[in-house]
Write a protein that binds this DNA or RNA. Structure first.
Lengths: 145, 145
DNA sequence: GATCACGAAACAACAGGAGTTGCATAACTC
DNA sequence: GAGTTATGCAACTCCTGTTGTTTCGTGATC
């Protein structure tokens, strides 16, 4: 399957928006992400509904941050995207009759659930503001070197 | 996309094979998994190459275990399947020019890598023999109750 | 009113597991 | 050695969800 890159794309965009004055058009965002404006609007709609972004129609319109990046975690973005499926692997049948399969599901399902829980917890610990500051460090290194 | 259920299917089959005398045909396995023999052969081929299974052609042929279930971990099976993609989510570009995207990838990629590492480590700790014994417990509970 | 920009619907492209068919090949039975 | 059983392999189609694209509607600005 093609990997779902909506989370990383949104993080990318949000940091750019933070460093940008005034609203940013879907057109410009699309160029940053190497995609097109419709995909951008579709993906960002969830973030607007959650109150992280605002969008303004018409001349001079576009997208703007409604919150500080320090107030938004990776998990917030993940949830705003509709909590996409995390794993490409899973069990064959969620409620099997076969006791063997039940034993398999118990072990595999448990391991997957725990891994997902850990990943999402980790996402909840990281604010986008931290990523932005990491970008600043990289920028400083780049210009210094 | 539809979840990749090859791992759980193979675990399911291996335990059944352990409780079965003589070779098991792809046809019979397919009925256990609610699929068809070609899918079974395709999926089990990797386990044969790794030496966990043998397959015999012709009359009276079929599949048989070449190892004890205690010698095979979930991770062994995962690897025999060609190490399928674990996550349905990922970063947009593995080697981006944009420094912002690099910072995003560092954070998201790291979290994903760590989660994958943990999951695979956990898989490495669980032998199929343990799952089989868990099945026995469930069976006992079922007949006792 | 012309232009700019978002909103929404509809559809094709793509990727990978799963399902299916057909045929070749090997092994056993008679 | 002919028939049967079973795997091995190749070449499809199907399914599902992200991504990409086009088109039209609508609101805001100039």
């Amino acid at each position: 399957m093609r990997a779902d890159s909506r989370l990383s794309r949104m993080l990318h965009v949000l940091i750019h928006m933070d460093r940008h004055d005034g609203p940013v058009t879907s057109e410009l965002i699309a160029r940053m992400l190497n995609t097109n404006p419709v995909v951008v609007r579709r993906t960002m709609a969830g973030l607007r509904e959650r109150g992280y972004l605002t969008s303004v129609k018409g001349h001079g319109g576009g997208w703007a941050l409604a919150r500080s990046l320090d107030e938004i975690t990776l998990r917030d973005v993940y949830e705003a995207l509709g909590e996409p499926t995390v794993f490409a692997i899973g069990v064959a049948d969620d409620d099997p009759k076969c006791l063997v399969e039940q034993a398999v599901n118990a072990a595999v399902g448990e391991a997957l659930r725990e891994a997902e829980q850990r990943l999402l917890s980790r996402f909840g610990e990281i604010s986008i503001g931290e990523l932005a500051r990491d970008f600043d460090r990289r920028m400083a290194e780049c210009t210094a070197g």
